[in-house]
C-alpha cells in the first residue's frame, strides 16, 4: 500500500469542478467510489492514486501534517493555517482559478487613511484617543500579524471573526478588517476601501505537494508525474479557465 499516494481535492462547488476539469485535461479522470456520499475516489486507469474529498481548509491542514501527499487548496489557507509552511510544503503549482486577494480594508469615510503608513499613525494614537487599541476583525491571524509586523505596526488587537467580517466596522465590532475578496464588491457594499498598499496576499487555487507525507521513490515519481502533467496542460492551455467559468 505504500506505493499509492493520496490526492486531496475540494469536495464541492466551483473549486471541485475546476479541479476535476484541470485533472481530466491532464489525463487524470476522477471517479467517485460509493455513490452520492463520495468521500473517496479514484483515478481511472491509475491505481497508484487515491482521491480524498475534503474541504479546502482541511486539505491545507492535512498537507501540513503530511497525511495527504498532494492536494488542491488556496494559497491563503496554506500560508494562514500551516505553521512554518515553508518547511512543510514542497512544490506549489498555481492552477489559474479561485483567484482572491487577502486585503486590509478600512471604512471608505476614513478619508485621511490611504496607506499602511496612515494606518500606523492612526493605530499609534488610538489608545490615547479611544481608551483601547485599534481593532482588526479577521480570520487570518497569522497573515495579519506578519503583514502588520512587516510595516512596523504592533499596536493593535485582533478580533476573531469567522463570518461576515466585512460587517464588523459598521457594527462597531472592529475598526478595520483583513479579509479575502475576489471582486471587491462585498467590500464596496459595506463601504470599505482597500488600502493602496494593503494587498497582503494574491491567492489562487494551487496543486500542492506535502514535504511531510511518507514519501518513497515510487510514490514521489507518481506525484511528480501528476504535477508535471497538470503543469504542462496549463502551459498548453492557460485560457482554459475562461472557457470553463460561468
Amino acid at each position: 500500500m505504500s506505493e499509492t499516494i493520496t490526492l486531496a481535492i475540494p469536495s464541492k462547488g466551483r473549486l471541485m469542478e475546476e479541479t476535476e476539469r484541470r485533472l481530466a485535461a491532464a489525463g487524470y479522470k476522477v471517479a467517485r467510489i460509493g455513490g452520492a456520499r463520495r468521500y473517496r475516489g479514484e483515478v481511472e486507469g491509475c491505481p497508484e492514486i487515491e482521491i480524498a474529498f475534503l474541504s479546502a481548509s482541511e486539505i491545507s491542514r492535512e498537507l501540513g501534517l503530511g497525511r495527504v501527499h498532494v492536494g488542491v487548496t488556496g494559497l491563503d489557507l496554506i500560508q494562514e493555517t500551516v505553521p512554518a509552511w515553508q518547511e512543510k510544503i514542497g512544490r506549489i503549482l498555481p492552477l489559474g482559478f479561485g483567484h482572491a486577494d487577502v486585503v486590509i480594508a478600512v471604512p471608505e469615510l476614513w478619508i485621511d487613511v490611504a496607506t499602511m503608513e496612515d494606518l500606523d499613525d492612526v493605530a499609534a494614537g488610538f489608545l490615547q484617543r479611544h481608551g483601547r487599541r485599534l481593532r482588526i476583525a479577521t480570520k487570518y491571524w497569522n497573515l495579519t500579524q506578519r503583514f502588520l509586523e512587516s510595516h512596523g505596526i504592533a499596536l493593535y488587537r485582533i478580533v476573531e471573526s469567522l463570518g461576515a467580517t466585512e460587517g464588523a466596522p459598521a457594527g462597531g465590532m472592529a475598526d478595520v478588517i483583513v479579509d479575502i475578496t475576489s471582486t471587491g464588491s462585498t467590500l464596496k457594499a459595506n463601504h470599505l476601501k482597500i488600502l493602496d498598499d494593503g494587498v497582503i496576499l494574491r491567492s489562487e487555487a494551487c496543486l500542492v505537494m506535502s514535504r511531510r507525507a511518507p514519501w518513497s521513490d515510487a510514490t514521489r515519481r507518481v506525484a511528480e508525474t501528476l504535477v508535471d502533467a497538470v503543469a504542462q496542460e496549463l502551459n498548453r492551455n492557460p485560457a482554459a479557465e475562461a472557457a470553463g467559468s460561468r
Binding site: P107, L109, P169, A170, G171, D175
Partner: peptide, 11 residues
C-alpha cells in the same frame, strides 16, 4: 451608511 456612532474614529 449605518455605522454605529461613537464606536470607532469620530468624524
Amino acid at each position: 451608511q449605518g455605522y454605529q456612532a461613537y464606536a470607532s474614529r469620530a468624524p
